[in-house]
Nucleic acid binder design. Sequence first.
DNA 1: TGTACATCAGTGAACGCGCGTTCACTGATGTAC
DNA 2: TGTACATCAGTGAACGCGCGTTCACTGATGTAC
Lengths: 215, 215
Amino acid sequence: MKWGRRAGPRGYHHGNLKEALVRAALELIAEKGPAGFTFADAARWAGVSPAAPYRHFRDRDALLADVARRGFQEFASALAKAWDEGKPEVMAAFDRLGKTYLAFAKREPAYYSAMFEAGVPLDTDRELREASENAFAVLRAAAEKLVSLIPSPGRPPALMVALHIWSMTHGIASLFGRGDAARRALPMPPEELLEAAVLIYLRGLGLNATAARQR
Amino acid sequence: MKWGRRAGPRGYHHGNLKEALVRAALELIAEKGPAGFTFADAARWAGVSPAAPYRHFRDRDALLADVARRGFQEFASALAKAWDEGKPEVMAAFDRLGKTYLAFAKREPAYYSAMFEAGVPLDTDRELREASENAFAVLRAAAEKLVSLIPSPGRPPALMVALHIWSMTHGIASLFGRGDAARRALPMPPEELLEAAVLIYLRGLGLNATAARQR
DNA sequence: TGTACATCAGTGAACGCGCGTTCACTGATGTAC
DNA sequence: TGTACATCAGTGAACGCGCGTTCACTGATGTAC
């Protein structure tokens, strides 16, 4: 019988405490929200004395910032993969992008909280800021490619379109699409609500969206 | 020289402690977020012993729920006043509605937090639930009137339109439009971002939005 | 109008609790020779 | 290959602190007669 790392009696050294603390934070945030998790809690969850986390993180905020950073990195790479530079077809790729955004918010509510609701300041940590910028850059690139389909006079700024899509998606995610606690009742799944909104919005931009129906 | 209620030495009785506690909560939430305010803090802010609040609220959560309830009530009446049943012109009224939403989020970040981010459960308190439903009912009524302008075949469900507008507005408000701490840089004011988004969305619905330009 | 009494609203002292943080320590691991 | 030593990572005890909550109390207010 083989033991997982958490099953057997561990020695004096934990071996991978830093990772364990991050996982603990995610677990606890998912359970009680970003405010309801404490440094001591995380240590307890990892099976370690309350002083041990100080070897790896300056304080609670540093741990939270690290969680947010990892979240943005995973988020950015999930979005980039979904968008895939608009291949094979821009509209279909755009649809994938939106679905992936919502799926991330639902699958990783703890990451999402840490990233957007915990009040982690983005400007203190360079890596954190870069990770968040990378995530937005994907949305921005997608918007860029979308507006390029629109004839030049009357073409809206790509940045604005990216911000619109982001706001719409974030709004749906935070009002309805959270996996941790369904906050409000909804007559349709959030994915459909988003898809419909984006179709209407794109039609308003003058983009023929029928190609997106192929999923 | 006349004294305001908080200036002079108060007697043994505070006189209006319940209101003072609510104001304290708003002040503290605006300062440190909905999680970073404590019952004891509120008592201190109101200049009263830590046991006094128990005469008026069962516990911290009850105070928070009361703040959320008041927030929804003010929100609902501000929205209703802005919408004014679509008078004199539907599109202009709709524009006012969106601006009023954002203005509320900016002017009353503490209320907005308590209402949408503090995790106050809506289903425990009847008055709270009703207040929140009243606020949404305004959006819903506005959407109803809007879609009635669209020719019947291909007319979208009003509820969906209401949810789209709400999500969009909430997304912009929570990402960019908060008065307490401008979370992210933006190339244009949030009001303009929202107005543009709504215009595009309405155009996508087949509504001629030029009438809205009259503000 | 005055007096007795009930009720209300806030006091202040006390408690147990868990958190954040520090400290000297010690077991485990890696490295130089 | 073995030994000495430096470094690393976690221990556990301790501290001060503020919070939530309770309790018997007391000053102020309202009301009945």
